[in-house]
Every structure is written in structure tokens, then in C-alpha cells.
Design a protein around this nucleic acid. Sequence first.
DNA 1: CTTGACCTTGACACGGGCGTCAACGTTTAC
DNA 2: GTAAACGTTGACGCCCGTGTCAAGGTCAAG
Lengths: 122, 122
Amino acid sequence: MRIGELAERTGVSTRSLRYYEQHGLLRARRSTNGYRSYSEDDVRLVSEIRALLAIGFKLEETRPFVDCLRQGHSTGGSCAASVEVYERKLSEIDQEIRVLLNRRAEVAAQLSQACPGCFVRG
Amino acid sequence: MRIGELAERTGVSTRSLRYYEQHGLLRARRSTNGYRSYSEDDVRLVSEIRALLAIGFKLEETRPFVDCLRQGHSTGGSCAASVEVYERKLSEIDQEIRVLLNRRAEVAAQLSQACPGCFVRG
DNA sequence: CTTGACCTTGACACGGGCGTCAACGTTTAC
DNA sequence: GTAAACGTTGACGCCCGTGTCAAGGTCAAG
């Protein structure tokens, strides 16, 4: 299929698909006219990328998952490198949560000082 | 005092001070030679801005606090507009925390599926 | 042949706060 | 006098994924 159909089937803009390719995450055969040509596997691959981006992964972090799929695994997360990224991401998220909790406490403290009558739940 | 001294006393780069001025948060008198001239009050003002930025405020969101200080209040948070920003910020932070918690759960779920032996605390 | 839908590459814009450099004026110290 | 340290404005870069536009090639339908 061509890029337009892949875009439609995955819900991803052609701009993004070309961007993924530019960064080596998506590879396309080329037709004789120069058009990109994709297979069914690429639909899954793009879906995997989007699913990861949706839960806060950076594009670069999806690379191990993409490689994993290319190596024939049914799931992008089945490889050791992917598991490592999962675990690293977990700790990053935990760290961000800690930062936000600290910020929240700080803001709440300042608010209650500036406005003693304001009740701050939490 | 001139910009270099203000930068040193507040620990803020001159670049940042000019940036704040460019966005109307900091105002400087000008000496005859064109140099910016600051007062003691500006030290407090810059400190207020930095304290707010440090807890996740956007620069624009510090404006009510700055205005509040300019109106003679001893604390930037003593004005109604500031309190509103505090409260809005609190709910924004809460929302971000919820998003991160959802992401964490999602990542943990995918990890435990990809690697059943991996123990995920939380 | 023309129209229009599709494809190609390349490039600019965004947001946000700041680093950093250029090119130049001023003041201070020697 | 001159060098160093300071000041000025203006501009570009960064991150990062995407929108959007430009200028063109390709193909199917009429």
C-alpha cells in the first residue's frame, strides 16, 4: 500500500510517517515511480510506535520495540532491550510523579499562606 | 545597581533578566548611558519569579505575582489574581499527576505482560 | 489533453526559557 | 592610551513531533 492508505489505516499523518522513516523507525520499499510502498507488517509497526508515544515514550525510545518486531517477534516488547526501556521508563515516570507531588505540596503551602481561608484538599 | 549585580545577587543570568523585561515582568530605569538600573525591590521581584518558575509556573503565570508586588504588597501571592493562579496551578498539577499515574499503570501492565517474571512494584 | 488526487523532497513555524555569539558603546583601572 | 570588564541590541540554536506550504512528478478518469 502507499503512504496515504497507511496513514488512513493507522490514523497517523503522512508527515509523521515520513518523519518516522527519516529517523530510521519505518522503512519503505519504493515503487518504480518513487512512491513508498508498505506491507501489512508496517501497519502493526506504526501502531506499536503510536501506542508507545501515547504513553509518554519518546520516538527514539520506540526503536527497540520496532527492532523487536522486525526480528519476527509478535510483540515489540518481547525483547530484552524493550524490557529495559520499559523499566527505565517506569522509573522516569516515578521520578516525574515525585517532582509533581513536591510541587503540589509547595504550591499548596504557599496558597494556604497567602490565603488562609482557602481550603486545599490533598 | 546594574544588570550584572542584579544577576549576581539573584543567581539569574543577564540573559534571563533581559528576557523577563522583554516580557514585561521586569522594568528597569535607564542611566544616561543607556544601562539598566535596578532597585532593591527588583531583587525581591526576581526572586519571586524564580521561586515560581522553580515550582512549575510558566513565566506568564508569574505576572499577577509581579503586579501584586508592584502594588506594594509584601508578598506576591497576597492578591486575588495570584490566588486564582495558585488554584489553577494546583488543579493543573493534579491533572498531570493523574496522567502520569495512568501512564505508569499502562507501562507496568505492558511490562508485566512482556516479561511475566519482572516484578513491578507499585 | 485536462483535471484532480495522490506522491515526492525541502523548508519554515511552533512553544519556552535560555545559551551564546556578533558587533558595538561605556566605564574603570593601569 | 589602551585593555579589560561591563553594558547594549539583535539574532540564531536547542528540544521534538507535527502542521503546513511550495514546487514539482505520477497516475487514473473523463
